[in-house]
Design a protein around this nucleic acid. Structure first.
Lengths: 339, 339
DNA sequence: TATCCTTAATAGATCGATCTCATCATGGCA
DNA sequence: TGCCATGATGAGATCGATCTATTAAGGATA
C-alpha cells in the first residue's frame, strides 16, 4: 500500500532532474521570461515527469503574500449574502486570491474567533458583513490599522465600506406606494441593530413626512430577515385596529413571507395590500404576484466590496473609503394600487 | 505615516524579550505543558507587550499541515447548498480547519481551476459537490489518490460520498401522492446530469411501477433547480392534454415555483394539484400551502460530509466510504388530496 | 586583443515557525 | 557521596519556495 512512502516532489527535485539550480527552476515555474527556451523546456519536462505540484504555502512565506482573503458573512443562507459572496469570490479569484469563508450566524463571539483565525492565517485582507448587536467596540474595527478590512452591507466604524443607499431606496419605495394610493404604510423586518435596518427605517420615515403622512411606531415591526419573519409579522400588523394597507419590507425574502401572510388573511396582495421588498433577488422577478422591489444588486455590491479591498491591500495607508451604490425601484405587480 | 516601517513581531523577538530561546517561546505559544510556570508567564507577558500575532502559515510549512480544507460548491446560492455549507464550515472550524470557498456556478472549467488552486495551496482535503455535465473523466476523481477528497450531494466515481437516499425519498413521495388520491404524477426539475437527479427519477419510476401506474416520459420535465424553473415547467406540464394532477419536484425551491405556477393557472395547490418537494428548507415549513417535502436535512448532510473528510485525512489509505442518509417524508398542506 | 555589455544561470540567505537531539540542573534514592 | 530519572531549556536543522547579489559565457565594440 504505502510501502514506498512517496515524499513530496519539490522544486529542488525538479532542479536536480533537469540539471539546473532551484533558482532557475523557480524562474521557469513562475514564467519569468529570462530563462532560455531550451532550459525552460527541459525543466517543464521534468515537472511533468516527476508530477510536481507547486506549493504556494511555501512561496507565501517567502514573498510575504498569502494570497488569501477572508470573507466573513453573518448568514450565507440569506440569498442576498449568497449572491454577494459569489460575486466576491469570483472577483477575488480573478485577482488570484483564495477566499477563506467564515459564517458567523450573527454571533459576535464566533465573529471574533474567525477574525483571529484569519488574521493569524495570515489573510492579506478581510471582507466582513459585521454581525448584529454591534456595540461601540468593534471587533473588526479594532483591527483596521493592522490589516486591510472592508465592511459591506452593514457599516462598521472606521472601516472602508461598500453599501447601498438604503435610506434613498426606502424613500423611493414609500413614495411609490403613496403615489399608487396606499396611504397607511408599515415597515416590516428591519433590525435596528444593523445600519441597513436603521437607514431603511430612516428613509421610510423621511418619505412619510414628505408625503404628509403620520409616522406610527405601531406600524414598524422588526423581525428576522426570513420568509417566516415576514409571514408572522404581517399577521401581527393586520391585527392592529386601524390597520395598514401596505408595507415596505426589509428585504425580498421577508416580502415573500408577507405576501403569503396577506393571502392567508384573505387579502389580495398588490391590490388590497401593497408590498415592496428590497434587493431584487432572482425569486422576486416572477410569481403571483411578482415583487416590486428596491434593486440593491447584491452582485454589484460584492464586486464593489472586493474592489475596495484590493485597493486597500495595495495602499494600506490611504484614507478610509466609502462607496454607496444607488438603488432603483423595480415596479412589478405587488403594489398595483388600491382598487 | 509609515515613517517607522514596523516589522512583524516574530517568535524570536518574543524569545529575546523574555530571555528564552525560540523553542521555549514556541512551547508556550502552543500551550505545551512542559514549560515551567514562571517561564510561561514571562513569555506570555512579552507576547502581550510586543503585540505578537501567531503566523500559522509558517507553522504550516514546518508541520506539513496547512489546516485548510477546500469547499467546492456548484452553487451556494441554492439554499440547500447554503445550509450544507454552513454546517460544513462549522464542523471544520470545530476541528480547527479553515474553509477555502470555491463556487463553480456549475462550470467544469472553473471547477478544475479551483481544484488546482486548492491543491497547490495546499489544502489538506477537499469537499466537493461536483458540477453538472460530469462525463467519465472526473476532474476531482482523478485527484483521489493524491489528496483526501469527499463528494457530497452528487456522486463522483472513486470518491468518498455523503449523500441522501434519493431514490428512496422519491419513492416515499410518490407513494404518498398515490395514497391521497393523485394518480397522474409528474416529475419536475431533475437534471439527468447529476446523480441526485437520476436517482430521484429512478425512485419516481420505481414507485409508479409499484403502484401500477404507467410511466409517461412526457410528464418528466427537467429544469433549472430554481423557483423560476419550477414556475415555468409546471406551465408546460399543464398544457399536456391528459394533464397530471400532481408533481414530485426536484427540490423545495422548484416546488415553491410550481405552487405559484399552479395558482396562476387557477388551480388550488394541495387539492386540485398535489406538490411535493425535496430537502425541507426553512421556507417549506409554512406558507400557503405549506410544503410537503422529503427531508434530506442539508445540515446533517454537511456535517456527515465534513466528518467523512476528517476521517479520510486521518487515514488516507482506507477504502472508499459512502454514507447514505435516510430521508423522511414530511407531510404538510401541499398534497392534501383530491377533493 | 582587450574591454564592456548583455544574457543566463547560480549560491546562499531568508521567510517564521517547529522538530530533534543534546545539555544542564535538580532531587530522590541506594 | 554518587547515580539516574525527570524536567526545563537551547542550538541548529528543517519545511519549500523566492530574493539578492554574483558569476560565467558570449558578442559587440574599439
Amino acid at each position: 500500500m504505502d510501502a514506498v512512502q512517496k515524499r513530496r516532489v519539490r522544486l529542488v527535485d525538479i532542479a536536480a532532474d533537469a540539471g539546473v539550480s532551484r533558482a532557475t527552476a523557480s524562474l521557469v515555474i513562475r514564467n519569468v521570461p529570462t530563462v532560455a527556451e531550451t532550459t525552460r523546456k527541459r525543466v517543464l519536462k521534468s515537472v511533468k515527469r516527476l508530477g510536481y505540484v507547486y506549493h504556494s504555502g511555501a512561496a507565501s512565506l517567502r514573498t510575504q503574500q498569502s494570497n488569501a482573503v477572508g470573507l466573513i458573512v453573518s448568514d450565507i443562507t440569506n440569498p442576498f449574502f449568497a449572491e454577494a459572496s459569489v460575486a466576491i469570490e469570483e472577483r477575488l479569484a480573478a485577482a488570484n486570491y483564495v477566499t477563506l469563508l467564515g459564517n458567523t450566524s450573527e454571533d459576535r463571539v464566533k465573529e471574533d474567533r474567525v477574525l483571529k483565525t484569519m488574521r493569524e492565517f495570515p489573510a492579506q485582507g478581510i471582507l466582513i458583513c459585521p454581525a448584529l448587536e454591534r456595540d461601540a467596540s468593534g471587533g473588526a474595527s479594532a483591527l483596521a490599522d493592522r490589516l486591510p478590512i472592508v465592511s459591506f452591507a452593514r457599516r462598521a466604524p472606521g472601516l472602508d465600506y461598500a453599501g447601498v443607499d438604503n435610506a434613498q431606496g426606502a424613500e423611493l419605495a414609500v413614495e411609490h406606494l403613496y403615489q399608487v394610493g396606499y396611504h397607511r404604510i408599515g415597515f416590516i423586518g428591519g433590525n435596528p441593530n444593523s445600519s441597513a435596518g436603521r437607514e431603511r427605517l430612516e428613509g421610510y420615515q423621511r418619505a412619510l413626512a414628505r408625503s404628509g403622512l403620520q409616522f406610527d411606531p405601531l406600524l414598524v415591526i422588526p423581525s428576522a430577515p426570513t420568509r417566516r419573519g415576514g409571514y408572522d409579522s404581517v399577521q401581527r400588523l393586520l391585527q392592529i385596529e386601524d390597520r395598514p394597507t401596505a408595507a415596505l419590507c426589509f428585504n425580498d425574502v421577508v416580502a415573500l413571507g408577507v405576501v403569503e401572510g396577506i393571502q392567508l388573511a384573505g387579502l389580495k396582495p398588490g391590490e388590497d395590500f401593497g408590498v415592496i421588498g428590497f434587493n431584487n433577488i432572482p425569486d422576486a422577478s416572477y410569481g403571483v404576484p411578482s415583487l416590486t422591489t428596491v434593486d440593491t444588486s447584491p452582485r454589484q455590491l460584492g464586486e464593489t466590496a472586493a474592489e475596495l479591498l484590493l485597493k486597500r491591500i495595495e495602499q494600506p495607508d490611504s484614507p478610509t473609503r466609502t462607496v454607496i451604490l444607488q438603488p432603483r425601484l423595480i415596479v412589478r405587480e405587488s403594489c398595483r394600487g388600491r382598487t
